[in-house]
């Protein structure tokens, strides 16, 4: 779908969504991330790849955590980083969004890392970006969060390098989750044996099977024989929007407990893109338990974001005269 994000030679021009990318490119991201991991362990925690480049973190939806990982990633690649939290209301016109972009472009940004609350926002900015300016999607509405999905793939790969043997369950609020959408595409592209979604229908999008997944409404059945379980954050306001009943019913049906985890394979790893709601979607004993790789996901985020930034900015030679 997104030819917008590729250069004519197939390298990354922008990074907007996993959908539309080739498996080899995802593998390259994972391998590049593996090469960049050691940078954090050295005396000088930087490589000079992006020396002289300027990365602007443009966050229309506040997220200190994600913004910080992008900031550190860019700095470790020797780029200059500027952070901008842009306060917008839902009535902010698209034109003024674009004015913001154009003003910053005039300050010679090479890359925008953009988070926005509307689906398609990253595509919108990429479509209007000047030649030689790249857009990296740090989350747009419910649509995509491709760097999060890639760091999750990197985490899985480190534990279980053969994707074709994996059964992966994604549990919870898939309807509103850009992370889940990107994970599903990435897992299917990397050849996962089976991707399962476990959720009540109120938290699933229309015709979820069309994404290439199997749907389960029952947690125990869905977890059976899984190698990887990815828990999604449940926003408490879902209980007001009639997506869910109140009280602890969600946790009783879909919360990941030690007892439930028994249904998965004994070496199953437990993931969560964070931030967690302990006792809402996941029991503390599981989140902190031996099968949890949740903290590892956070540290893997750095290498993966470095890899993607280096690949995108390394692809700019295609468009620069």
């Amino acid at each position: 779908m997104n030819d917008l994000q590729l250069n004519p030679d197939g390298s990354l021009r922008h990074f907007l969504s996993i959908e539309g990318l080739k498996p080899a490119l995802l593998e390259q991201i994972i391998e590049t991330a593996a090469s960049l991991e050691q940078v954090a362990k050295r005396a000088v925690k930087k490589v000079p790849v992006l020396r002289g480049k300027t990365v602007m973190n443009l966050f229309f939806e506040p997220s200190t955590r994600t913004r910080t990982t992008f900031e550190i990633a860019a700095q470790r690649l020797s780029a200059d980083v500027i952070n901008l939290d842009v306060q917008t209301s839902s009535t902010t016109k698209g034109e003024s969004l674009l004015d913001t972009l154009k003003t910053l472009e005039a300050m010679h940004a090479d890359m925008f890392v953009i988070r926005h609350h509307e689906s398609g926002a990253a595509t919108f900015f990429a479509r209007h970006a000047a030649p030689g300016v790249s857009v990296l999607n740090a989350g747009d509405g419910w649509h995509a969060h491709p760097t999060q999905a890639m760091l999750d793939m990197f985490t899985i790969w480190k534990h279980k390098p053969r994707f074709d043997r994996l059964k992966v369950a994604i549990v919870g609020d898939i309807l509103h989750s850009r992370v889940a959408r990107s994970q599903i595409h990435a897992l299917n592209l990397l050849g996962a044996m089976e991707v399962r979604l476990i959720a009540p229908q109120t938290l699933l999008p229309e015709q979820p099977e069309s994404l290439g997944v199997h749907v389960y409404h029952n947690m125990e059945e869905g977890l059976r024989d899984c190698d990887v379980v990815i828990m999604l954050r449940l926003q408490k306001e879902r209980m007001q929007g009639a997506h869910l009943p109140g009280g602890d019913e969600y946790f009783r049906c879909y919360g990941l407990t030690e007892a439930r985890l028994q249904h998965a394979r004994p070496d199953c790893i437990v993931m969560h893109p964070g931030p967690m709601n302990r006792g809402v979607e996941i029991a503390s004993s599981v989140a902190d338990g031996p099968q949890s790789v949740i903290l590892e996901q956070v540290s893997n985020g750095l290498a993966v974001r470095m890899a993607i930034m280096a690949m995108v900015l390394g692809g700019q030679h295609e468009v620069r005269p």
Partner: peptide
């Protein structure tokens, strides 16, 4: 509210 809205994360 169909496959495309599901892919694009658009409210159906």
């Amino acid at each position: 509210a169909g496959k495309v809205a599901t892919r694009l994360g658009l409210k159906g």
